[in-house]
Amino acid sequence: MDKVTNLILTGVGGQGILTASEIISEAAAQAGHDVKKSEIHGMSQRGGSVNSHIRFGEKIYSPLVIKGECDLLLAFEKLEALRMADFVKEDGNIIVNRQQINPSTVINGTAKYPENIEDKLTSKYKSVIFIDALNIAKESGNIRTANTAMLGAASKLLNIPADIWIDVIRMRVPERAIEANMKSFQMGLDIIK
């Protein structure tokens, strides 16, 4: 428990990133870690980039992850994965949801969505895992559980017991969506070998 774990969740406003980061930090706290989490609300939520930093371990000072120190980047969108990649440490992990959401600058033609993002990431980082979280969510029966699929994948790489994940997700999602969330979580988890 001595080691500090640094995580960043990134994506686009509306993808459920803040809920996912709530669940991770709550689970880390229940597992007995000191935890800090930092994110931005307000204007940046209106379809802009969203980042949430989570750090847990024996004793945490800064709520912000330092560049080059991130153990796990959980990217809900490909372009945002690339944008935040330089936070990841050499032997860190990146989990990327294969979703492309065009920013307004691309929609209105003032910028181009970068090509070959997957190659760019895999050529530089040793451990990059791609998942189709939206497909998993569809399969689970609730399209809004893509973020839970991402959590499932992340859970495999984090030092938090499985039963705590289940408890916290049950507590955080609406009653009627529990079953679909559990399915998505398990399918996300099964992707990581």
Binding site: V12, G13, M43, S44, Q45, R46, G47, G48, S49, L79, E80, L82, R83, P103, S104, T105, V106, A111, K112, Y113, P114
Partner: peptide, 8 residues
């Protein structure tokens, strides 16, 4: 990279 500003 292309910026992703907030939008209505």
């Amino acid at each position: 990279l292309p910026a992703r500003p907030p939008a209505m």
